Amino acid sequence: MTARSRSAASGRAGGIAARLIIAMALVIIAGGITALLIAALVGPVFFHHHLIEVENSPGTTFEHAEAAFISASTLTLAIALGASALTSLAVSLILARRIGASLGTMSTAAAQVAAGRFQARVARPRVGAEFDELADAFNDMATRLDRDEDLRRRLMADVAHELRTPVTTISATVDALEDGVQQLDPQTVEVLRTQASRLTRLAADLAAVTRAETGALHLDRQPMTPQEVLEVAAESARDRYTAAGVELVVEASTHLPEVWVDADRFGQVLANLLDNALRHTPTGGRVGLGASRHGDGVRLVVADTGEGIDGVHLPHVFERFYRVDTARDRDHGGSGIGLSITRALVHAHGGTITAHSAGVGTGTRFVIDLPAAATVADLPTADLQ
Rank of each mutant, 00 (worst) to 15 (best):
R144P: 03
F366C: 06
A244W: 04
M224T: 06
E319W: 01
Q222R: 14
E178N: 11
E319C: 05
P223I: 07
N56T: 13
E258I: 05
R121G: 00
G333A: 05
A243Q: 14
L199H: 00
L151C: 04
D296I: 12
R193A: 12
T200I: 07
A234Y: 01
S292H: 08
R97L: 11
T87C: 15
A39E: 14
G334N: 04
L370F: 05
A237C: 07
S10K: 09
L36H: 13
S335C: 03
P257H: 02
I79R: 08
E130A: 06
P371Y: 00
L219R: 04
L155D: 06
A39S: 15
R211C: 02
R328L: 15
R126K: 06
R121D: 01
R330K: 11
R198K: 05
G82D: 07
A372C: 02
G333D: 03
A101Y: 07
D369E: 09
L289G: 00
S57N: 13
A101N: 09
V189R: 12
L379Y: 08
A23K: 07
S197V: 04
D304L: 03
R365P: 00
R320C: 06
G100L: 04
A67W: 11
L77H: 12
T254C: 14
L145V: 01
D148A: 11
H161A: 10
T2I: 04
V167I: 12
L89W: 14
T169K: 08
V324I: 08
T143R: 06
R299H: 04
Q222M: 13
G32E: 07
V360I: 14
P315K: 03
V346D: 00
E213Q: 10
V167F: 05
T254K: 13
V301Y: 02
I309P: 02
V261H: 00
T381S: 12
T354M: 04
L219P: 01
A216S: 10
A78E: 09
A78V: 14
P186L: 03
A9E: 11
L339I: 00
V159H: 02
V367P: 00
A35V: 08
F118Y: 09
D179G: 11
A25G: 15
I28D: 10
F318I: 06
P257M: 05
A123P: 07
D146E: 10
H316G: 07
I16K: 07
P44Q: 06
G334Q: 00
M224H: 09
